[in-house]
Amino acid sequence: MQYFFSTYGQMLLKAVFTHFYYVLISVSIGFCIALLLGILLSRIPKYSKIIIPIISIFQTIPGIVFIGILFIYIGMVPTTVIIALSIYAIFPILKNTYVGICEVPEPYKEAARGCGMSQFQILTRVELPIALPTIISGLRMSTVYTVSWAVLAAMIGLGGLGEFIYRGVGTNNNILIIAGAIPAAIMAICLGLLIDYVQKLVTPRGLREENSK
């Protein structure tokens, strides 16, 4: 153990940092795009019923294939990883944003229109706040997934905790595999808890109970 940390300690710390960096950037980008797209799609529910299943097909393309293809075109730069991870992060958030907004009960929207709110005011004052708990649980799902997908970065030699796993697999060294897997798992759990906490903070008291049901 002592030996492990003295040999790999520095490297592990760096890998955790890189991994975290990929997750943070990708999820942030994915979140912004997904939120925007989700809102846009919720304005055109008729078409969204067709568009969303099509997007979800992309979700089924294996990450390795996707990173591989991007690698050919963009090369061995972090951008490749970030683009791939962002795209994968989009879908859960997009779907929850869309569903969350569409499921805002009609009476609230009618009351908002009746009060004389504009479309944009209805979105920002009524629809998004009511959909927020759903959107954030999409964000949570995305984040946890992205932590595991970021392992693939090492496939094209771009570091992260995946490096330990790949090296471990390659050299038949179980300790290395575990040294990559455990921090990734801890990272996923911690980020999940953090987002749960944020969700509690931003959900108004009036919506809390419904959320826990």
């Binding site: 009476p107 908002a112 009060c115 004052r125 706040p129 108004p204």
Partner: peptide, 15 residues
């Protein structure tokens, strides 16, 4: 905005 509106489902904003 110049016509008050009350609906059966009440529709108070829960947030």
């Amino acid at each position: 905005r110049n016509i008050g509106y009350v609906i059966q489902q009440i529709g108070l904003f829960p947030n």
